[in-house]
Structures are given as structure tokens and as C-alpha cells.
Design a binder for these strands. Structure first.
Lengths: 278, 278
DNA sequence: ACCATAAGATTGGATATCAATCAATAATTT
DNA sequence: AAATTATTGATTGATATCCAATCTTATGGT
């Protein structure tokens, strides 16, 4: 059995990944303690874990908030992610056996089928998972954890951001990376990884209040008590968008007027942006 | 002002880096609470931070211990470190300006002078710092933190390990890396980084009880109350060895008989191994 | 010698309490 | 009336004490 603070940290992480808790959201100790029905101390420990992961920031005597990365930090996160995935690519091009390549191809194929079937939600999940599978094949748990942490932090950015670019160039990037790597064209594969992330970042436009705010109580309600897995837990995971290959969403042009902390717009429109490119 | 648990975590980290707290060492809550004169809860929070950093492992209802990486994990940590530094090298070869190269050369030069002056302690510190400076020049704070964490974890390994290889090939590696990079020979530089770490790891031999154990109270005494900086805090930082370029120690052939948890050998011989290659 | 049980110690957590600090209001001054 | 100051309230950081669960060790019986 893991510690209570760990499970709470995991739940909060899940909620952040699902964009139910958005950057800047206050994570009050007493509030969370009531929600999870634990003492404040356990909540504090969970928040420390989140802060260590870069998902929350704790300000002395002011409390914890969901981290709100700056544009600068966003670039750094994506740079680091690129660096890690390029490095893994280099390792895989040397060391990966037939089984590994098969797994990658199978994953890409599953994603393609999901797209073909119009199951955008599944395609999204698979698209996100591709990177994880990719790194897992390095068989380096340390690297996996670092990568996973970076990926989690990118989800923060997608809460803050309005996508504004042409997704066409990103189509089939995963497939092409696998192709290039297996053919030994490492340099091109690495460039493609770089371009992939760079294009995504370039399209990002920092914007406040893209998502409707939810109180922690509302945001966390689906995760409590229910023992079901994440897929079924959050109904709003299915993104409301037009099309995509699972790694990208349809054009989303949401440029809300930059209201400063509009505390009025609470729990109103459930505008979710899941499915933005990874 | 930072939180108390953070400063305690920092102190424990420092003690671990200085090999005063060795892998496997029990970190009892009550004991540490008395040492730092805080409540157990603060200690727990500090231990959670250490565990998140990979420097401690917490076993339910058994407590926290200084992490004791397996040989497998050791390899993974060094692989990850290599990957990160290679990636940074690639970035620097593109983007680093004259000032950056100058800083690297200056650092190498300072280390060389320290070696020439026979100031092995300083040379050691500079040798360790080189990697940090190297990564800092990427101007990516996220990457810096990841790298620093990996470096911290490698110090764990040096507590567990007996070095057993020829250090000659490692001499001037730093200088050569800078040379190669500035000349645009990225591939060779990356290979050299790989070889550097690989040679170090290959020479490692997992061995128990290479270092004398200290109780946490003894280990932490130098860090308490004194407001001096780390350099003057720990007198035992000057390693007792023959020669080296600051990035490596002289031949250290310490193959102690593998005693199982010899709780007898406590606070006896202060055998420190600082200055092993990075 | 060996296994089982009981005692002791340690951890994980809850609750209540207190000081310090921040935020927001109310009161005062100009 | 506007701006500044003072007061109040709320939240955090931290402590002390207490309790249950679990692990470790010591004891005792076979």
C-alpha cells in the first residue's frame, strides 16, 4: 500500500493532466483536506510532491497553486523534451531489436486505425502514449521518469495556451520517425523530432483563461471513491473537436479577451482542449 | 525565506553528496527531528523531498533510508547523464557564443592550474563543476535541474563503489570536449562524452561497506548552526589520495571483505573517497 | 535449535493549538 | 471623495500529543 499523500498527489496530477485543475488554480490545504477527507498534513505532503514535480508552486504563507509556466519555461520544457527524445532515438537506432520496432509500428498502426475509425478520443490517448512507449523501449527507468515528468509539465502548457498553426505538417510524424530510425537515418529522425516539437511550440500563443475554471471540489469529484480507471472516470476526456490524427486537434482558434482573473466565469462552459499535439 | 523542510532536505542532500550519509543508512524520523530540533512532520516532509529526488527511499512502516541504487540503476543513471550531456553538447555546438566558449576554457584552465598547484581539493570541485557549467550554458533551467539531479544521484554510486580502472585515459577529457565542440566536431565530442562516462562506469565494482558508516548525528554535526559555506564546513572534503586532474582520483583499490551490515564498524576510520571521476 | 507469541519501537496519520503572515475590509486622515 | 492606515479574518507553517498499524526484537515453549 502506498502512502495516502502519494495517492492524493497522483489524483491531483491526474486532475491537472486532464485539465480539470488549470494553472494558477489555488490549492488550499483546508479545502483539499475536506475533499479527500484527510488531515491538512497529508495534503501538504501531497502538495510538496506536486511542487517537486514542477506541477505546483508553493509560495510561503500564501499556499500552493497549480504551476503556471512562463513562455520561457515552456520553451525550456519543450527543448528538454526534444533533447531527451532525440537522445533516446539515437540509442534506439543502435540497440533496438526487431521486437521493439514491431511494438512501435504496432502502436502507430493502432493509432492509425483509431483515426480511421473516427475514434478521436482513443487516437488522442495513443498519440500521447507513443512518446511514452518510445522512451520505454530504451529500457531506462530513470530516463522514463524524467521523460514522464516533462510530458506531464507539457500538459500544463496546453491548459494555458491557444493552438494556432497548421496541423497538416504534423500528421504521421510518429510513423515517419519510426521509418527513419529503422532505416538508420538517425540524423533525419532527430531533426524530425525537433521540428515536431518546435512546430508545436511555435504555434502556441500564451493566453489567459482559455479554459473555464473549476473549483477543486468540482474538478476532483470524478476521482473520488470510484475505483474505475482513468479512461472511464472522466467523461469530458472526449474532446469536442473536428478531426485529427490523435496527435493533433482540429483548428482551435479560441482567443478569449484577456480578462484578468474573471472570477465570475466559474463552472460555466466546459470548454476542454484535450487532444492538442504532443 | 524557504520552508524548514526544504532547508533540512538541502542539508541532508549535502551530507549525502559529501558521503557522510551513505546508501542504506537509516534516516529515522525521531532521530533527525532531534538533530534538527524540529518536529517529526517537518522531517517527514524533508524525507519526501529526498525520495522524490531519488536520494532516499521510503518503505512503508519501515522508514526512510539513503537510496542504494542497484548496478542496473547505476547504469541507467549514467546512461541518462550521458544522454543529457550529449544533447547539451549538440545544442552548444550550434548556439554557443564566444563568451560561452571562453567561460568553458576558463573553467578548464582554472582546473588545470589547480592541478598544477597540487591543490587536489580545488581541482576536484572544479572537475565536478565543469559538467554543471557545461549544462548551464544551455540556458535551460529545466535541463539544469534534471542534470543536477542526475549528478546528485551519481554521488550515491560513488559511495557504493570501488573504482578499479586506469584513469590515464580520462585526463583532460573536459578540455578535449571543449576543443572538439568548438571546432564543430560534434560527433567526436559526443563519443568522447560517452566514452568518458562509460569508462567510469565500467571501472565501478559494486561493493558494500566501502565507506565507514556514521550515525546521522555524527554525519550532520558539521552542517548544524554554522553559517559557513560548504567549502569550509566539511574538513574531510580534501580527499586523501595521490594525484589526479580533479576529475579523477589516484588508483583506489579498496576491496573490503563484504561484511553484511557490520554495525560494529561505526564512526571509526574516516575513509573518504571524494574525487572519484565524474 | 526452532518456531510462535508477546513486548517494544517506529511509522503513518489525526487532532488541536499557536504564531506569523497575507488579504481584505473598515476606519481614519487629508 | 480619495488615499492611506489600522484592524480583522483567513491561511499557512509548525508543534505537541495521541492513536492505530506494522515491523523488529526478545522471550518463551516445544
Amino acid at each position: 500500500m502506498t502512502s495516502r499523500s502519494q495517492t492524493i498527489a497522483d489524483t491531483l496530477t491526474r486532475a491537472i493532466i486532464d485539465h480539470r485543475l488549470v494553472p494558477g488554480c489555488k490549492l488550499g490545504e483546508r479545502e483539499l483536506a475536506e475533499i479527500f477527507d484527510v488531515s491538512r498534513i497529508v495534503v501538504r505532503q501531497a502538495l510538496i510532491r506536486l511542487a517537486d514535480d514542477g506541477l505546483a508552486q508553493i509560495e510561503r504563507n500564501r499556499g500552493a497553486f497549480v504551476a503556471k509556466p512562463s513562455m520561457q519555461e515552456a520553451m525550456e520544457i519543450y527543448d528538454a523534451l526534444t533533447l531527451v527524445e532525440q537522445g533516446v532515438a539515437a540509442q534506439l537506432s543502435d540497440r533496438l531489436g526487431p521486437a521493439g520496432w514491431a511494438e512501435l509500428r504496432q502502436h502507430v498502426e493502432r493509432q492509425r486505425q483509431a483515426v480511421a475509425a473516427g475514434n478521436d478520443a482513443l487516437a488522442d490517448v495513443l498519440g500521447q502514449e507513443f512518446h511514452t512507449v518510445f522512451v520505454r523501449l530504451s529500457r531506462n527507468k530513470v530516463m522514463q521518469e524524467i521523460h514522464a515528468q516533462l510530458v506531464r509539465r507539457t500538459t500544463l502548457l496546453r491548459s494555458l495556451i491557444t493552438a494556432d498553426f497548421d496541423y497538416c505538417n504534423l500528421l504521421d510524424d510518429h510513423s515517419r520517425v519510426v521509418d527513419l530510425l529503422e532505416k538508420g537515418r538517425l540524423k533525419q529522425a532527430m531533426d524530425l523530432i525537433d521540428t515536431h516539437h518546435r512546430t508545436v511550440v511555435r504555434g502556441y500563443i500564451m493566453d489567459r483563461e482559455v479554459f473555464a475554471e473549476m473549483t477543486p471540489a468540482e474538478a476532483l469529484a470524478p476521482y473520488l471513491d470510484g475505483k474505475a480507471d482513468g479512461a472511464t472516470l472522466v467523461p469530458s476526456r472526449k474532446p469536442a473537436r473536428t478531426s485529427g490524427n490523435g496527435d493533433s486537434a482540429g483548428h482551435v482558434h479560441v482567443h478569449l479577451p484577456k480578462t484578468d482573473r474573471a472570477s465570475t466565469s466559474r463552472a460555466s462552459t466546459k470548454k476542454t482542449n484535450r487532444g492538442l499535439p504532443t
